[in-house]
């Protein structure tokens, strides 16, 4: 078996799926320090998380997280000319975020120990033939 040439497109697609899967945790984490409104959440995800989230995706997820009791929302007049809706983590939202974060950490650790192999290079058998 020979190693396939690098396929940037396939890697990009995989990366997009990976980010999708993490979106819920990313949104919850963005609210950890302080309540934010929608556009701020998008900015935090983009600037700190490098995630370009489709705008039509964010609000439906926020709605669901709120219906699940993980967030509460509140319109505030911040002097911007129009009210903004701020999202705040609830106690159960914090618990959930902690749980997801722990699962994430465990996953990253396990993947890490698998991927160490890439630094060590392919094994050779006693005849000196490389396996790759």
């Amino acid at each position: 078996m020979t190693a396939k040439p690098d396929e940037p497109a396939a890697t990009d697609k995989w990366g997009a799926q990976l980010r999708k899967g993490c979106l819920e945790l990313a949104i919850l984490a963005s609210l950890w320090k302080e309540p934010l409104y929608g556009l701020e959440i998008l900015r935090v995800l983009q600037e700190q998380g490098g995630m370009a989230v489709a705008e039509g995706t964010l609000y439906p997820i926020l709605n669901r997280l709120r219906d699940d009791g993980l967030l509460v929302s509140e319109w505030r007049d911040t002097g911007a000319g129009h009210p903004r809706k701020y999202y705040t983590l609830t106690a159960s939202g914090r618990t959930r975020t902690h749980g997801m974060s722990a699962a994430w950490g465990q996953f990253v650790g396990q993947m890490g120990s698998l991927l160490v192999a890439l630094d060590e290079g392919p094994k050779t058998d006693p005849q000196g033939t490389r396996y790759v």
């Binding site: 556009l39 705008e55 709605n63 129009h82 809706k85």
Partner: peptide
């Protein structure tokens, strides 16, 4: 209201 606010923002 959410979407209107987002557009204004």
């Amino acid at each position: 209201s959410d979407i209107r606010s987002h557009i204004e923002e």
